[in-house]
């Protein structure tokens, strides 16, 4: 940690963008720990297969349901597949779902929130009514409801469905921020000069909410990964032939007491991944809050 300790203030002083949020992020130990964890994990998901000879689908007839060993680092499942290889494949898929879902959700939130906040009137009321409506039914219930359709469409559809259920709270936040920005002098000045809605959104609203949106994307990746895992665990998320951490956990769950490696290794990968992402997201959010408090 000593090297990063030396580097952080230096980086912050070099990059130092307007606003100061990013310099606070860069000086936050939490952000660095999270980022390091995340990078390590991503690197592992990419080069990990090269370190270990087994393929995720290969069936080792000499090892059915064996515990961790030098031959199979994370052990094998009941039909002799290597758990290490499967965890890597699952991790990649899970992160992919998160990385697709979170930006889509945040983008949707940014657009809906900005339009509602700037347009006001009935547009605002209609959009916020839609948000309220979607908040009333828990996301998990909607996903279960839509699961037969999603089953046919594959994991990208699942990612989008998760995104479609994650944007509401952020849309409200963006709307609130937009409404207070609309009262700010520079937005009013632009409006007096005849700026159209898109101009105000692109030039004034989004740049000022950039750090908030980034924080939301980061936190959203974690949320989406958790949602995916939960869906898959109950058999309505990612399906064969796709493998995700959720499907692995579903397969390993019943055997958790007898053959713990089937459950614990994917669970560990999941928790570490989500922890890493939320550490970063949280650090960004803290930096924003600190800026808000200091004015």
């Amino acid at each position: 940690m000593t090297t990063t300790n030396d580097v952080r203030p230096l980086l912050a002083s070099v990059i130092r963008p307007s606003g100061g949020v990013w310099s606070r992020v860069l000086t936050s130990r939490q952000a660095w720990v999270g980022a390091t964890m995340l990078l390590t994990l991503a690197l592992w998901a990419l080069v990990g297969p090269a370190l270990h000879p087994w393929d995720a689908t290969y069936v080792d007839l000499a090892a059915f349901g064996q515990g961790p060993s030098t031959r199979h680092w994370f052990g094998t499942n009941d039909i002799g597949q290597d758990v290490y290889a499967q965890v890597l494949v699952g991790l990649r898929k899970s992160l992919l779902v998160g990385l697709v879902a979170a930006p889509v959700a945040t983008g949707l939130a940014a657009v809906v929130g900005a339009v509602a906040g700037l347009a006001g009137g009935w547009v605002d009321r209609a959009l916020m009514a839609a948000v309220d409506l979607m908040l009333v039914i828990p996301a998990f219930y909607l996903l279960v409801l839509c699961s037969p359709v999603l089953a046919r469409a594959g994991w990208p559809a699942l990612a989008l469905a998760i995104a479609a259920l994650m944007w509401m709270v952020m849309a409200r936040v963006v709307r609130g921020q937009t409404r207070s920005l609309r009262e700010r002098g520079f937005v009013r000045a632009a409006c007096f000069s005849g700026a159209p809605l898109w101009w105000v959104a692109v030039r004034h609203v989004w740049p000022n909410l950039a750090s908030l949106l980034v924080a939301d994307v980061t936190v959203g990746v974690g949320t989406a990964v958790l949602m995916e895992a939960t869906m898959s665990y109950f058999g309505i998320g990612v399906r064969v032939p796709d493998v995700s951490l959720g499907t692995l956990l579903a397969a390993g769950g019943p055997a958790a007491a007898t053959r713990p490696w089937l459950f614990f290794f994917p669970a560990l990968a999941l928790v570490v991944a989500v922890c890493a992402v939320s550490l970063v997201g949280d650090a960004v959010r803290d930096a924003i809050d600190a800026g808000g408090a200091r004015g």
Binding site: A256, A257, S278
Partner: peptide, 22 residues
Amino acid sequence: SFVVLATPTFVVAVLLMVGATR
């Protein structure tokens, strides 16, 4: 709380069950 929030509820449930079995 950080770790707990990063852990899906069903994993917590399974862990508790394993613990209870033990």
